[in-house]
Design a binder for these strands. Structure first.
Lengths: 184, 184
DNA sequence: TAGGCCATGTAACCGGTTACATGATTAG
DNA sequence: CTAATCATGTAACCGGTTACATGGCCTA
């Protein structure tokens, strides 16, 4: 999923500016499963315009900089539908926390506990922001996606809270055996 | 989390070759929360060697190409611990499926149903491979991580199976209203 | 008056992927 | 006989980020 398609997706549900797309995509409700920054969104929008997939009109504002409102064209809609027709790329998940958890035996207990605390806080924040953001998007599918997110994050959070003891128990147990391993 | 640190993490739990690291990291048990390819792992290993964080020795094999077995040094272990001490980067999750789900109203019902089928299959595969791979890693934390993965993926899978009807119901409902939106 | 928000845009940089080169062995 | 597995490595390329430039308005 490249930034162009992402822009089309957002614009497909209503007109928007580059600034707003970035906000939605990297702070708002979309931010939980996609991401993009100014440096890729503005060029993408420009290129989409060149290809006739979007149009734009400049809007004056009082006391604020002009904004360039983009709308998707029929061609753009077709392009977007096309992109969705081909099998979606698999989900992509990266987690430093899980890497640390995997290596727990080699890390001091305090450090592991700290990492767990931070992860819990992070997951709780994430869930809270889903609740807050879902109202800002006028798409029917948003509620379904929000529920899905709450479910997954919630079950992960519950697992960590209930089983953190097990991880903390094994923390540091590999430190003594390290010399043996190194000598091999 | 860059590839170098990732290599240190793997090597911290035992000696390994570039080939094996890639397998573990992009097909094996690590692959569910990190990723890297040959083109980044081999240069990373080389650079780690230059910095004295790992050592390597070449091993002859009969009927197979030589393998270069890397071991982490004490310096490397310290470096790795250091990397883990600073707060972990937040989890990073990307999902084309959720983007599609979010836009469900603008997509034909069949297409949505198809995407859901594929997502279910993907999640089931993912869970099955966790079960298969966890035995291949000799780290105590692996079981905890595997359980975490099963929990999260399982709850997501369950949600999709139970609520797919709701999503399919709203699929395509936005297609008629599109003209109105475009005219605005 | 300092910092944050609104708002658009560019250029340098970088981490990583893709594809290629090489080649023996083994399984189907 | 073909394809896959083992195994290491390089080079071109690319998508995207980071940081910068610009500047008015509003809030603390």
């Amino acid at each position: 999923m490249n930034v162009k398609t992402l822009c089309l997706a957002v614009l497909n549900s209503g007109n928007s500016t580059g600034y707003e797309i970035r906000k939605l995509v990297s702070e708002g409700h979309f931010s939980h499963f996609v991401d993009a920054s100014f440096g890729s969104i503005y060029p993408a929008l420009k290129s989409l315009g060149d290809d006739g997939l979007v149009t734009s009109r400049e809007e004056q504002q009082i006391g604020k900089p002009n904004r360039k409102v983009y709308s998707i064209t029929e061609l753009g809609q077709r392009e977007f539908l096309d992109a969705l027709t081909k099998p979606a790329q698999k989900d992509n998940f990266k987690s430093e926390f899980l890497l640390l958890a995997m290596c727990a035996e080699l890390i001091e207990r305090d450090l592991v506990a700290q990492a767990i605390d931070r992860q819990i806080e992070y997951l709780e924040d994430e869930i809270a922001s889903i609740d807050a953001e879902v109202r800002e998007v006028n798409m029917v599918g948003a509620d379904w996606v929000a529920d899905y997110g709450r479910t997954c994050l919630g079950s992960g959070l519950k697992y960590i809270k209930e089983n953190r003891g097990d991880l903390e128990k094994i923390a540091g147990t590999g430190l003594a055996g390290r010399q043996v391993l190194a000598a091999e």
